[in-house]
Design a protein around this nucleic acid. Structure first.
Length: 1044
RNA sequence: GCCUGGGUGGUGAAACUGGUAGACACGCAACACUUAAAAUGUUGUGAGCAUUAGCUCUUGUGGGUUCGAUUCCCACCCCAGGCACCA
């Protein structure tokens, strides 16, 4: 047994009175051996039955919300590293409660997601059961550490009563257009058989299992976190004034003023920086480079609109411009323009124009209907189609039903055929001023998979004689993104990503088609890891047969494809400036492309003249569906007739069915698909046959808002009651692992801002102060893991040393946010400290007056034996006829030390510097041991300061001194500033910068007097040695520095 | 490559706005108590030279500012973390 402490604790009932200065004589329990096990258990039970940690919305008190990142209850239980953060919040929470705050310090469990599901698969238990078991085990482990959670507020993300609101939030996101179905290729983990968000991928591997992720094209639900990118970024540096409730989205006042305001978020710089990097904002410009074909065979067909002709609007101008560029242009004069019919006009166009693979059809207004109907009757595909402000389907606008042509034209298109006849190259130009057209054009663009360009026409509906936007749209151009528009004159070539859509477009016209196809195929075979390896030598192929035209100087530059250009960042195309970019330079040298040094232009001028400014983010929308069983079902119903139908809010929660087989399918559908009784439902809108969405939410969903639920955990009518939310929010202190910097902490901020926007949350940020916990490593220096067999179990440590010792040790180990190695051997120091406190109390309870220590006796004995009479005040005070003076001055000294300790401990807890707080407590205890007298007040004061750190022993001794109510609801001590100053200070004397002596002086002694005292010291005289003094610096109460 | 932290005894670490570097604790050594061990207590403990006084060196390295630098400035090395062919 450690330290020989094993006797059963017997708090003897033998009571006796003790005299104290203020109070009436009270009873003090005689203390015996310190037995942590019995004592800690006793107090944990007492706290629970008395409910002293219950959180109440008391409007008369200030509030303090302190939060832990809630645990994921894995099957392995807690190791000794987990409680470190919990102990820290517990200490803060206990002090704040004693300081008179109404404290909210809750705990719950985050249990949906892959780890629980994989564990369940491995152990062949249903996750519902294994989670319940694991939660129970976690709670037991937490309880023995003596944490002051209000368990009546416990939550669990897998509880339908909880995830009902997770689903509710999703529905609100859907309502606001922030949740959408997408068919883009996404990250897919082949081992876990599910799609992943960007945040779940680390260096091209699945963050959970380490498998290399693949790109997979599949249907998925996505949340538009990118809409919040700017706010997520800006609010990291928001100022706390103006009020917390106002977003820093807008301007941040004048600079000098802003500097004075405190930052709203008190977060570690590293985490803020990680988020900034992750959001990855860059300001730059988009610049269009026209493509020019060596062998120019494009032929244009221009189709005018209702009441128009080939001679009206922009048509003559456009024809001339295109002919200037060497194209052949046909602009038929369609019959009966004032009262047209579809049959007549289509027939006319078919008969009078030439259509082949090089034909580009440009149509305006009603001409667009003619164009599409014509294309539907062609046998062979054409090059591309440009629709300028197409006529609106009367279905979308009643006004159109009365137009003269509405009966003689039909809007009944074969969209997919048109798509294939144009090789998917369709552009729709929309004039922003024509708002009534917008909805239809969006619909049309969706049906045709067309590129929709919303722009400003020179005249409404593109009726001006010159419409440059149309010329831009019809002349093939590639848009590049650059952050260096000032280098535009240095462009010597252009590079497209191999996946760039334009590569497919121009492929038929290339002279080295096969070489290009081969390169594309090869780069597709590479994994993301191989492709994005910056050390790899760059490769590429020139697209022979086309050139890009630099808009700044009309220079024609070669066009290449190369896989160092990424398809999914910027526009997937770059302008290469080898003289000013290392990567371009490397590529240019390899392929002998020109490198041109230029003088930089003014950035803004260049953007204004040749492009448009734009902001790009690395942040991607949040892929929100998982093809797995163990998650919140997405509350969506798919109806053949009505399409995507949200589950009505009154029908929430959509409960996850209990199933026998939840093995992932790997097909891109979740195992829920097989549960036909659950999947097949009636459409809430039309009552027809419909199917439930079978994808589930990712693990991060439930944790993105849980802190709000603690404020009102049982509410059945709302996510959180408005009044309670206002009272508790925001979280004042949030402690957890730094590994959540770019996952949980970004997602939660995103959801919080959304909830703020819809009026659920009242603050722009959820967590005001954030602190990350440093990991505790195994004794072998590696991460604690079953795999390395280096896990230290807190239960065993508590059994051997007690929870109070564990708590003190974990706080004393080192700076809180620093990674540190566990050492069971080092725990004795903390244990000794606790025992010293215990012994001090024994000294108190076993003496008639609190001031004749056993130690004093032994010291006295020793002093007597060695015969060194003069050495100790103690001896004198113990034996002197008038011990009072010595005792009083010792008493004063101790009081002063205690006041310093109050200050230090209080400030250190606020600053989360627990290691130095413990150290100052140790200093205080050491001083008490040495002091000949310790008053009851002094000892109780120490107990209060100790209470947050070692709550069990503190309450035990507090009660032993006759206090009826728990120490944890007593009042936190305050220090007297007058007591912090010593009457005498040590003055250091330096000669030529070296310390040569010191002396004591009364506080605030004058500079002159200090100087002369310093000079008169023997050890100083030695160094002065009659030399001329060149300079003397005196710092009051500190030092005298003499230069010779 | 860019960004953010950090580098102090045998070990974990302290150090206010530039003012005695190494608080507090572990370990180690000696002593006391003990038949003995453990526990406890006392004393010592950055390195080197002298070992009595004392002197010199020392906060990753090299410079600088200053009466004085772990602290401020410049350059560099190393460690941890974030981002990364992001144009």
């Amino acid at each position: 047994m450690i330290l020989g402490m094993k006797k059963k604790a017997k708090i003897s009932a033998k009571n006796r009175p003790i005299k104290t200065s203020k109070k009436k004589p009270v009873t003090i329990t005689t203390l015996k051996a310190y037995d942590h096990s019995a004592l800690e258990k006793k107090w944990q039970q007492k706290w629970a039955t008395k409910k002293i940690y219950k959180s109440v919305e008391d409007t008369k008190k200030p509030k303090y919300y302190v939060l832990d990142m809630f645990p994921y209850p894995s099957g392995e239980g807690l190791h000794v590293g987990h409680p470190k953060g919990y102990i820290a919040t517990d200490i803060v929470s206990r002090m704040k409660r004693m300081q008179g705050y109404s404290v909210l310090h809750p705990m719950g469990f985050d249990a949906f997601g892959l780890p629980a599901e994989n564990y369940a698969l491995k152990t062949k238990t249903n996750p519902i059961d294994s989670v319940a078991k694991n939660v129970k085990r976690f709670k037991e482990q937490l309880e023995i550490i003596g944490l002051d959670y209000d368990w009546s507020r416990e939550i669990n993300t897998t509880d339908p009563a909880y995830y009902r609101w997770t689903q509710w939030i999703f529905l609100q996101l859907l309502k606001k257009g922030l949740a959408y179905e997408s068919y883009e290729p996404i990250n897919w983990c082949p081992v876990d058989k599910t799609g992943l968000a960007n945040e779940d991928v680390e260096n091209g591997r699945c963050e959970r299992c380490g498998a290399v992720v693949e790109k997979k094209l599949m249907r998925q639900w996505v949340l538009k976190i990118t809409d919040y990118a700017d706010r997520l970024l800006n609010d990291l540096d928001a100022k706390s004034d103006p009020e917390i409730t106002k977003s820093a989205d807008s301007e941040i006042g004048s600079l000098d003023e802003a500097n004075e305001k405190k930052a709203l978020l008190d977060w570690p710089e590293s985490i803020k920086e990680a988020q900034r990097n992750w959001i990855g904002r860059s300001e730059g410009a988009e610049i269009d480079f026209r493509l020019k074909f060596d062998d120019n065979k494009s032929r244009f067909v221009l189709l005018h609109g209702f009441q128009g002709s080939a001679q009206t609007n922009f048509l003559p101008w456009l024809k001339a411009e295109l002919e200037k560029r060497g194209h052949e242009v046909e602009a038929p004069e369609m019959p009966n323009s004032m009262n047209p019919t579809e049959a007549e006009q289509v027939a006319y166009v078919l008969a009078n124009c030439h259509f082949d693979e090089n034909t580009v059809v440009v149509a305006h207004s009603l001409g667009c209907v003619v164009a599409m109907k014509t294309i539907m009757r062609l046998e062979k595909p054409i090059s591309s189609l440009v629709l300028v402000a197409p006529a609106v389907d009367p279905m979308f606008d009643k006004h159109y039903a009365t137009r003269p042509f509405s009966k003689s034209f039909s809007w009944d298109y074969n969209y997919s055929f048109i798509r294939s006849q144009t090789n998917g190259r369709i552009t729709i130009l929309s004039d922003r001023a024509e708002t009534y057209r917008a909805k239809y054009l969006k619909f049309l663009a969706g049906k045709l998979s067309a590129k929709l360009i919303e722009t400003e026409a020179e005249e409404e509906h593109f009726c001006s004689l010159q419409e440059p936007e149309i010329l831009k749209a019809v002349t093939p151009a590639v848009t590049v993104f650059t952050t260096r528009p000032d280098t535009l004159f240095g462009v010597t070539y252009m590079v497209l990503a191999p996946e760039h859509p334009w590569v497919q477009t121009v492929l038929p016209q290339l002279r080295n088609k096969h070489e290009v196809i081969e390169y594309i195929t090869k780069s597709k075979l590479e994994t993301e890891i191989e492709r994005t390896d910056a050390k790899k030598e760059k490769t590429g192929v020139e697209l022979k047969g086309i050139k890009a035209v630099n808009p700044a100087n009309d220079e024609e530059v070669p066009v290449w494809i190369a896989d160092y250009v990424l398809a999914d960042y910027g526009t997937g195309a770059i302008m290469a400036v080898p003289a000013h970019d290392d990567r371009d330079a490397e590529f240019a040298r390899k392929y002998n492309l020109p490198i041109r040094e230029i003088e930089l232009e003014n950035r803004d001028d260049m953007i204004h003249k040749y492009g448009r400014s734009i902001v790009k983010y690395k942040l991607r929308d949040w892929v929100f569906s998982r093809q797995r069983y163990w998650g919140e079902p997405l509350p969506i119903i798919h109806c053949d007739k009505c399409g995507i139908v949200p589950v009505p809010e009154k029908d929430l929660p959509v409960k996850l069915p209990r199933v026998k087989s939840y093995q992932p399918t790997g097909t891109g559908e979740s195992p829920l698909t097989a549960i036909s009784a659950w999947v097949n439902v009636k459409c809430p809108k039309c009552r027809g046959k419909a199917r439930r969405e079978t994808n589930t939410m990712p693990q991060w969903a439930g944790s993105s808002w849980y802190y709000l639920r603690y404020e009102d955990p049982k509410n059945k009518k709302a996510l959180v009651d408005r009044r309670k939310e206002k009272y508790w929010s925001p979280v004042d202190l949030y402690i957890g692992g730094a590994e959540h910097a770019t996952r949980h902490l970004i997602y939660a901020r995103f959801w919080h801002k959304f909830l703020y926007d819809i009026g659920v949350a009242s603050t722009i940020e959820p967590f005001i102060k954030l602190q990350s916990v440093g990991l505790i490593m195994g004794e072998d220096g590696r991460k604690m893991s079953k795999r390395f067999d280096n896990v230290v179990n807190p239960d065993e440590v508590v059994k051997r040393f007690g929870a109070d010792t564990l708590r003190i040790y974990e706080m004393f180990m080192g700076p809180f946010d620093q990674q540190i190695t566990w050492s069971t051997d080092s725990m004795v120091g903390s244990r000794r400290f606790i025992e010293k406190v215990w012994k001090l109390a024994i000294r108190a309870s076993s003496a008639a007056a609190f001031g004749s220590p056993a130690k004093l006796a032994s010291r006295t004995r020793k002093v007597l034996r060695s015969g060194q009479e003069e050495s100790s005040d103690l001896t004198i005070s113990a034996r002197s006829d008038s011990p009072r003076t010595a005792e009083i001055s010792a008493d004063d000294a101790l009081t002063r030390i205690l006041h310093k300790t109050i200050k230090k401990v209080t400030e250190d807890i606020v600053a989360l510097k627990f290691n130095t707080a413990v150290s100052s407590l140790m200093i205080a205890v050491n001083e008490m041991e040495k002091s000949p007298t310790v008053s009851r007040e002094q000892f109780e004061l120490l107990l209060k300061l100790l209470a947050p750190f070692a709550p069990h022993i503190a309450d035990e001794l507090w009660a032993a001194f006759g206090n009826k109510k728990s120490i944890h609801i007593s009042e936190w001590p305050q220090y007297d500033p007058a007591q912090l100053q010593d009457d005498e200070v040590r003055i250091i004397v330096q000669v030529n910068g070296k310390v040569r002596g010191s002396f004591m002086a009364a506080k605030d002694t004058s500079n002159e007097s200090l100087e002369s005292s310093a000079k008169s010291l023997d050890e100083v005289q030695k160094w002065l040695d009659g030399k001329a003094i060149r300079k003397v610096v005196v710092v009051p109460n500190r030092l005298v520095s003499i230069v010779v």
